[in-house]
Every structure is written in C-alpha cells, then in structure tokens.
C-alpha cells in the first residue's frame, strides 16, 4: 500500500491577507505544515503542490534540500478550491489529476494545508487509522464542534433587528439542537473509494487549538500563541522522559 501526502499552496489563498511564507516561531507557515506531515512515518512520499511562481523559484529549492520537492500544479487543477466534502465528479477528478501529474498517485493520500500549521502529526495519524478502519468512508477530515445557536438576519441585514433561527428555535434549548461541525482544510482520502459515486466523507474530532486556520493577519498572533504553548508542552514532555517529541 502506498501512502502519499501533499501540502496545497494556491496563489489565490494570499488574497485573504496572509501568505504561505508568513513566519511563526522562526519558520514559515508552510514549513510548519510540512514538518507535521513529514513526521508521519506511514507517508511514503510528500510534496508541496503549488501554482505560485515564487514558491517554485525560491523556497522550492530549500524544501527540496530538506527532501520535500515542490511541484507545479497545472492550471486546470487550480480552477476550483480543493473541496473535501464535494461529491461532484468534476472536482474529484481535478484533485486526482493533480496527484497523478505530481507523481503522487497511490492508495491513500493526505491533503494538507499551510493554513493549518498546528494540526499535529498525531491527528494525521488518527485520521489515517479512522479511514482504514471504516469500510466505506472515502475521506476523513478533521472536525471541531460548532455552537448550534445559529440565526440569520431577516432581510439579509442584521440592522433589520430581526433574526431567523437557522439551527435554533424559540423556546428550545441549544443543547437540544443536533450538533454542527466545522471541517478543517485537510483530508485523508482513500484514492480507490473516492472514485465511487457519492463518496462518503466522515470526520475525526480534533482539539480546537489544532484547528486554528490562518486566513488573515489577525489570526497570526493566536496561531503563534498556541504554537508556543505546544512547544512549551513538548519541552516539558521531552524533559520528563528524555525522548524525542512527535510534532
């Protein structure tokens, strides 16, 4: 069985205000995400897939020296965002084409994101095991729970002063509402089952602190704070048992 992995870096992601080369704790966000997946021993091959010229030209060599090649995504593979809940055949075909062109075809693939620099190796491992222990799931994504007390403003503008319960109802306690989840931008996919019609996606709950997604500059201080706490926790663990920590 061949397990491959990739970190997807799209030019359009920078429109939100933060780029893959923003620094956190002395390393680029991309390098944090790469390190987490590189720490997963079951991955046979890892690469960065990108349509960014800057990444291919500059950092590409650096990452390649660290054993992680940078491969260019063809334009047809970047017309849509990588959506790990989709059942649309065209989108899934696009994702599979990207992997084939990058030489990452295999049996199981881990799709990573530089915007999730705190997603731990252990969570990747849990998703991988969850996929292979489920007989029908085609994809596993990391999830966090979301407060179901949700409303939308009548007329589309909150200034109207009136809210309509979307996942709530007057007089009903929020704990009665079925749980909602927020999937993070990562996925472990079974490349055989994903070709079936209507492939099933399931989830593995992860800690809220690991699911922090860096989209804008405002997210950077929080990500840095939580990363620093992870490091402090790991330093404590390492000093206690004298062993090497797992990212």
């Amino acid at each position: 069985m061949r397990v491959t992995a990739s970190i997807i870096v799209l030019e359009r992601d920078a429109r939100d205000g933060v780029r893959w080369d923003a620094r956190m704790g002395g390393m680029r966000l991309l390098e944090h995400a790469v390190a987490r997946l590189k720490g997963l021993p079951l991955v046979d091959e890892l690469a960065v897939l990108t349509d960014c010229d800057a990444l291919c030209d500059a950092l590409g060599n650096t990452l390649a020296c660290a054993g992680v090649p940078v491969r260019r995504l063809c334009p047809t593979c970047t017309t849509e965002r990588f959506d790990y809940l989709t059942c649309e055949e065209s989108r899934i075909r696009q994702q599979l084409l990207a992997l084939e062109q990058a030489g990452l075809a295999g049996d199981v693939h881990c799709f990573g994101s530089w915007r999730l620099p705190l997603l731990s190796t252990r969570s990747w491992e849990r998703m991988y095991h969850a996929l292979l222990e489920d007989r029908i799931a085609a994809r596993i994504v990391p999830l966090t729970t979301e407060d179901p007390n949700l409303y939308t403003p009548l007329g589309g503008d909150v200034a109207s002063g009136r809210l309509f319960g979307v996942w709530a109802h007057p007089g009903r306690d929020r704990q009665e509402a079925p749980q909602l989840y927020r999937p993070a931008e990562a996925c472990v996919a079974h490349l055989g089952r994903i070709r079936y019609p209507q492939p099933l996606t399931k989830g593995v709950e992860i800690a809220m602190t690991e699911a922090v997604t860096v989209r804008t500059a405002e997210d950077m201080p929080l990500a840095h704070f939580l990363w620093a706490r992870q490091q402090a926790g790991r330093a404590c663990h390492d000093s206690q048992d004298g062993g090497a920590g797992v990212p």
Partner: peptide, 9 residues
C-alpha cells in the same frame, strides 16, 4: 457540516 445517520458529513 452536520452528520447524517451513517456518520457521513
């Protein structure tokens, strides 16, 4: 997302 009866999202 929400979970369906079979646990899929």
């Amino acid at each position: 997302c929400l979970k369906t009866r079979d646990g899929s999202l």
